[in-house]
């Protein structure tokens, strides 16, 4: 008899597609002619966030199954999940660092810089996530899966086609389960552990949105339109 085709361990098509879709790193390019201040730091971060959002919307369109959702459902997921995506990217870039956050390769914030920008509490909350993922040695495959799962799980409001959204959630969660079964078979609870980190991500993202809404109301930091549009969506 002919044996059915057996996939190699870890041969996970969803993971491969997500790894391929991963955006290139973006540089913050803080203006070297402007002296350091809270306004300069926040202006740099808001500009970086706007450019990150553009590439992350492009990225979302490469999540297998996402473009098949209705436009309204794609929009509502991004309107709820965008900050979780931005924060998870900062967290993953910061895993190799000690008590510092890599907002970009050329923009790493330490305690003093966070304090100057008025971001100490928020950055400390993000560092909690870094600590959590460091403790499990989160790998790149898990990072891309978690990011996609965070997005498709981000909206609790009714969807136009809730079955399609549920199906996408199932596909991505299944891909994480399969990946863990193949790559981390010694820890059968690893997928669950990673999923259980998502409430802290959501809580931190809500805090970040609240903080930047305050900065927006304050009106001293220029913000680009997409960033403003998504802050307003919250």
């Amino acid at each position: 008899g002919v044996l059915p085709h057996k996939k190699a361990p870890g041969d996970n098509q969803v993971v491969s597609l997500l790894l391929l879709a991963e955006p290139e790193a973006i540089l913050a390019m803080a203006d070297p002619t402007v002296p350091d201040s809270d306004i300069k730091a926040l202006t740099t971060l808001c500009d970086l966030a706007d450019r990150e959002l553009v590439v992350n919307i492009g990225w979302a369109k490469h999540i297998p199954g996402f473009p098949s959702l209705s436009l309204a459902d794609q929009m509502s997921l991004l309107q709820s999940g965008w900050m979780e995506i931005l924060i998870l990217r900062v967290v993953f870039r910061s895993l190799a660092l000690d008590e510092r956050l890599a907002y970009a390769e050329d923009y790493v914030m330490d305690h003093d810089q966070s304090k100057m920008a008025g971001l100490l509490d928020l950055n400390n909350a993000i560092l909690q996530l870094v600590k959590k993922y460091k403790s499990v040695s989160l790998d790149r495959e898990e990072f891309v899966l978690l990011k996609a799962i965070a997005l498709v799980n981000s909206d609790s409001a009714p969807h136009e086609d809730s079955e399609a959204v549920q199906h996408l959630q199932d596909v991505l969660q299944g891909a994480l389960q399969d990946y863990e079964a193949a790559r981390h078979a010694q820890d059968p609870r690893r997928a669950g552990k990673l999923i259980m980190s998502l409430p802290l991500l959501r809580q931190t993202a809500a805090r970040a949105v609240q903080h930047f809404c305050g900065i927006k109301r304050d009106g001293r930091v220029p913000m680009h339109k997409l960033f403003l549009e998504l802050l307003e969506a919250k």
């Binding site: 991004l78 680009h224 339109k225 549009e229 969506a233």
Partner: peptide, 21 residues
């Protein structure tokens, strides 16, 4: 959709230039 026109546009095309200030 009217309130979220940039997101709407970006989802519909593959434009990845920065958004206007």
């Amino acid at each position: 959709t009217e309130r979220h026109k940039i997101l709407h546009r970006l989802l519909q095309d593959s434009n990845d230039s920065p958004t206007p200030a």
